[in-house]
C-alpha cells in the first residue's frame, strides 16, 4: 500500500506541549496527486503541517513519505513531570533536515525568510543545504519564468520586498529544493486580489509541471482547480475527505463546517 502512495499519514497526534492540537489525522496522497486542506483558522492545520515537516515532534502515529518512515515509530513516552526537561533525555522523534532532504518541502505561512540576505543569496541556499544541486541553474530559470518579479529583485534584500514578492521568493525557494511534494500553507494570505490571481496562476503552473502539492487556503474555488482530494479540518480532526468529483460549493462547505446557513 505504501508503495503506491507518495505520502501516507496514519493516526497522527501532535501539538505544543502540553496542549494537544490535532488528533488521529489520517491523510494520504497517491503518486502524482494533490490535496487541499480547508478549515477555519486556529483548528490546527498549520500545526499539523509543522509536524509533517518535523519542526515539532509528533506525539504518536506514522508518517510515510516515498516509501520511507520519516518519524520514529511508536508513541512517545509519557511526560508526567511537567517541570522536567524531557528534551535533555529523549531523542527527537523527527528530523526536519531529513524531511527536507527526502523531498518534502514546506513553504510556511507568512514566510519571513532571511530579512538581511538578498534574493539571489536566499535562492542559492537550498540547493547547497539539501537538494536540487544538480539542476540548480535550470530550476532558477524556471523560477524566473514563473515569477519575473523575482528576477527583477535579485539584488535586493528580503526585508525591502513587498508581501507578494516575498511570497514569490518563498515559493521559489521551495522549488529550488527540487520538491517531490510541495506544501504551501496559505500562499495567498493577505495579498491584494490582483497579486492573488498572479500567484494562483503561478501555482497552477507549478502543479501543471508535475509537482504534487498540499495546499491550505480559504478559497475553495482556488483549491478546486488544483487538487484531487479535499480534507476538511475541524477542531484538530479531519472531519471529511471529499474527492474532486463530489466537490461541494462554498455554501455547502460552510454548512458542513458550521452546520448552518451563513447567508
Amino acid at each position: 500500500m505504501t508503495d503506491t502512495l507518495l505520502l501516507d499519514v496514519r493516526a497522527l497526534d501532535g501539538g505544543y506541549e502540553p496542549l494537544q492540537i490535532f488528533r488521529k489525522i489520517d491523510l494520504s496522497l497517491a503518486q502524482g496527486a494533490s490535496v487541499g486542506l480547508f478549515g477555519p483558522n486556529g483548528h490546527g492545520k498549520t500545526t499539523f503541517l509543522r509536524t509533517l515537516s518535523g519542526i515539532i515532534d509528533p506525539w504518536d502515529g506514522d508518517i510515510f513519505f516515498d516509501g520511507v518512515q520519516l518519524n520514529r515509530p511508536g508513541a512517545r513516552g509519557s511526560r508526567r513531570w511537567r517541570n522536567f526537561n524531557y528534551d535533555a533525555i529523549t531523542r527527537r522523534r523527527m528530523d526536519p533536515k531529513a524531511v527536507a532532504r527526502a523531498g518534502l518541502i514546506h513553504v510556511p505561512q507568512g514566510n519571513l525568510l532571511f530579512p538581511d540576505m538578498t534574493v539571489a543569496e536566499t535562492l542559492s541556499i537550498a540547493p547547497y543545504a539539501s537538494r536540487g544541486r544538480a539542476n540548480a541553474a535550470e530550476t532558477l530559470d524556471k523560477v524566473f519564468r514563473l515569477f519575473p518579479r523575482v528576477h527583477e529583485r535579485l539584488g535586493h534584500k528580503i526585508r525591502f520586498l513587498s508581501g507578494g514578492e516575498r511570497q514569490m521568493v518563498a515559493i521559489g525557494v521551495g522549488l529550488m529544493a527540487a520538491p517531490k511534494l510541495l506544501i504551501l500553507d496559505e500562499p495567498t494570505l493577505g495579498l491584494s486580489p490582483k497579486l492573488r490571481g498572479e500567484l494562483a496562476s503561478a501555482i497552477q503552473t507549478i502543479r501543471g509541471s508535475g509537482v504534487p502539492l498540499i495546499v491550505v487556503d480559504q478559497d475553495i474555488a482556488f483549491l478546486e482547480e488544483l487538487i484531487d482530494t479535499l480534507y476538511l479540518f475541524d477542531h484538530g480532526r479531519i472531519s471529511r475527505r471529499i474527492e474532486k468529483a463530489d466537490m461541494p460549493t462554498h455554501e455547502e462547505i460552510m454548512k458542513l463546517m458550521f452546520g448552518e446557513d451563513h447567508h
Binding site: S53, G54, I55, P96, K97, V99, A100, R101, I105, H106, V107, P108, N111, L112, L113, F114, P115, D116, M117, E121, T122, S124, I125, A126, Y128, A129, S130, R131, V173, A177
Partner: peptide
Amino acid sequence: APLGRAMRAVAQNREAAQLMGIDV
C-alpha cells in the same frame, strides 16, 4: 561560502532555514 550563507540564514530565521534542510 555556502556554509557561511547557511550560517547567516540560520541566524536570521531558524525555522525557515530548517525547512530548507539546513542542519541547524
